[in-house]
Design a protein around this nucleic acid. Sequence first.
DNA 1: ACTAACATGTAAAGCGTTACATGATTTA
DNA 2: TAAATCATGTAACGCTTTACATGTTAGT
Lengths: 204, 204
Amino acid sequence: MRCVADETNKRTLPTTGWAVLGLLSFGEELSGYDLKKRSDLCLRFFFSSPSFSQIYSELKRLEKAGYATSRRISHDTGTRDKRVYRITEEGSAAVREWARQAPVDPPVLKHGPMLRLWLGHLLDPAQMREVLLRQRDFAEDMRLRAAADAAQDGPAGAYPAVTLKWAERYYASERDLAAVMLDDLDDLDEFGRRDPGQSIRSPS
Amino acid sequence: MRCVADETNKRTLPTTGWAVLGLLSFGEELSGYDLKKRSDLCLRFFFSSPSFSQIYSELKRLEKAGYATSRRISHDTGTRDKRVYRITEEGSAAVREWARQAPVDPPVLKHGPMLRLWLGHLLDPAQMREVLLRQRDFAEDMRLRAAADAAQDGPAGAYPAVTLKWAERYYASERDLAAVMLDDLDDLDEFGRRDPGQSIRSPS
DNA sequence: ACTAACATGTAAAGCGTTACATGATTTA
DNA sequence: TAAATCATGTAACGCTTTACATGTTAGT
């Protein structure tokens, strides 16, 4: 039931569409390339950054819906043109309406590392540790990025800053969860795995 | 570059395919419907449960790849048949190989609530609080489910139990993060939002 | 008998990515 | 001037969901 146009040409966008419109909602005139960069910088911490091509197609859809306008920019020096987008009043109203009124859907999580640990009966301890160590390092890396972004005080406005703070805590937690699980696995090995279902350590 | 068959008919599956094969890797003979139920019960905490129809199509692909076999079961009483799947030796080897050798990709997260809070300049405080409260309640609900599943000692094997423990902690963290963010927003309101970028509370 | 819920799928459409093509700018 | 990188897109394909179709079982 997505993207049904009603008589006023309003549209229900995929969440990624709202994300792109949200990036435009600060008022700047941006190209698809710019938007991808912004997305990688700002959104990635809580919303897997969409590919270039999806950003381009979302922009076309936004323009068709009347939520954005575009214009070509010709470089004086070269010949290659580019197209930049700006949010419209309609677009501002629509994204505000979405942010205010849309139902609060649960976050979507596809946690490959956990899936593999769930299949621990197929692995040996060293391999499971390897997966967890990488996951822990990834989380710590993300945490540091979020912290760095927050520190340089670049985020435009108070709310992006608050979400960066959230991201810092989120990835700290992911890191710690991986560490705790490494301990749990150590305990499993210690008890020889002879007692499945009971052998996880006593309630922390 | 997914699903390219090499000369031995081996395939690179989408992660969801490995998840389905993983569900079969405990040795049971299961129907698509069974697998969906299992998925909702066990995998959901860390891997958004795929739809019925995707499970059915993954099963077809698994069979084609030689990773599973199926047979029809006719009910004596009624006429409606069903098809049940069982993992093959090839399938066991393949999923084990995947779990052991695949690169550790970062988890995929699409956190709608955080996206909306990032767009806080479009909302008023009451609406932001509403989003966070729902997110907090959702997380607590998930935490309770994971805890209940872990308590009833049903999980087949030690590793599913360990991942349930992980899930319990993960959703506890999500709940707490929402709560902390509610506090952060209170502080923002207190300071009158006159000082964007600085007005988040002192480092916790 | 009627309804709701359980169960088993197929078909169509939309979401999202990877691969490809192309031109401009910098750097070695 | 050659290669690498930045930049701007399009085309093809695969993943995933929603909508649809259909039969079965259990409750009322």
